[in-house]
Design a protein around this nucleic acid. Structure first.
Lengths: 223, 223
DNA sequence: AATAGTTTCATACAATTGTTTGAAACGCAA
DNA sequence: TTGCGTTTCAAACAATTGTATGAAACTATT
């Protein structure tokens, strides 16, 4: 056995390169060069390039979802079965943000790979991705319990927007840094998480203000 | 001259295919088959595949930015030099959302192409994309005038989150529909725009609640 | 030491990619 | 019509891709 050095070497090399350059920009030859293994090793150990990608994605996807659910359950237990909406959303976006941002994780492409996977639409991943909806439904359920008076459609939008802010922050971190001249500190991961969660929670809870805002818009459009 | 049928045939075919499948999944042969022209026509008229992509991107990018600025200026004029923050963000996300969503635009890949371009990191576009930051700075400036008491870093985050929600909604429209069992109606474009703008505005203006929220978090972490 | 099973390796293969070529077809002024 | 510049076309090109092959090297049980 010997924990199969070649296999893991390929996996880590592939993940790093995919995270850095994207799927379509990385060839098998790039991977084996990075892993210092023979070209045929990929097909020998994984069968095909697609199966390598799929294995990477499934592994990371399971780990991410497990961490998310762990934090969600912890929050619900702490709240006696009904978690605070902030904690629910923190469980949703925290793990992926912690995995992608921060000075220490800049070099560790573990979660950066997941973002790539969620962005680029490559066949082997597209085939698997349907299951993520079931995973998100669990969070929608927790949100429903946390905000029983909210309309369900608003909960879905809130969940969607939370993921939007998290993913977009990871994808466009470089641009945001440039745009803000470094004022937006993407290395302060917990601050980023707090901003994302706060933004999503505000949209979900500030209902009275929404009414005010609507009146204002209506007034503006009336004149 | 004759308006160069071949050129435009290639452009529209390429844009449609790129919007549908993504850059890496479309070959020159796919494009020329769709456009009913000879393979060599692409290199004859555009020089290379990269230059074709670049021309597409630049053209669309200019049109989108022009529309955004037009709406921004209209809002600022209506407000006597100081536009409402909602209107500023509406000018930012409205054009791209209108171009991508809605039942009539589902088939028109004009703006869908732009999303692909902003997602997939293809070299010819990456080279151009830096200019977009200058464009966004104009919106940051307008936001500063609208909310002079806000910290600049918060404005950048608000701008960033507004784009996040807009882009993510376009990218993941299918998933959101599935997740919500069709409750989130992505054909109602103006409702989507209103939700995105409202979410971003809340994050920018609900300052008092932020303080409350922080206290709450601190309390939770203290125990 | 001998053998059977596993893993590695250099190399070749077939397919696909963007690009080039040179001749044919076309458009149109002289 | 003639001639010239532009555009089209079929074919070929060189490079790159994922994959397959069969021999060699290795590992470990007997």
């Amino acid at each position: 056995m010997a924990t199969d050095q070649t296999r893991t070497a390929i996996l880590t090399a592939a993940e790093r390169l995919y995270a850095e350059r994207g799927f379509s920009e990385v060839t098998l030859r790039d991977i084996v060069a990075e892993a210092n293994v023979n070209l045929a090793a990929v097909n020998y150990h994984f069968g095909s390039k697609d199966e390598l990608i799929a294995e990477l994605f499934v592994t990371r996807s399971i780990a991410l979802n497990r961490e998310r659910l762990r934090e969600l359950r912890a929050a619900e237990e702490a709240g006696g079965g009904r978690a605070d909406i902030s904690d629910i959303l923190r469980a949703l976006v925290g793990p992926i943000l912690r995995g992608c941002l921060g000075p220490e994780n800049q070099r560790s492409p573990v979660a950066q790979f997941m973002i790539r996977a969620s962005i680029e639409s490559v066949p082997p991943i597209r085939r698997i991705k349907t299951k993520e909806i079931d995973h998100l439904r669990k969070f929608a359920g927790a949100m429903r319990r946390a905000l029983p008076d909210s309309a369900e459609v608003d909960l879905f939008w809130g969940l969607h927007f939370a993921l939007a802010m998290a993913h977009h922050t990871i994808r466009e971190s470089e641009r945001l840094t440039k745009l803000s001249d470094g004022q937006c500190d993407l290395d302060d991961v917990e601050d980023v998480i707090a901003r994302v969660v706060r933004g999503a929670v505000l949209g979900l809870t500030a209902r009275d203000q929404a009414a005010k805002s609507k009146v204002k818009v209506a007034a503006r459009e009336a004149r």
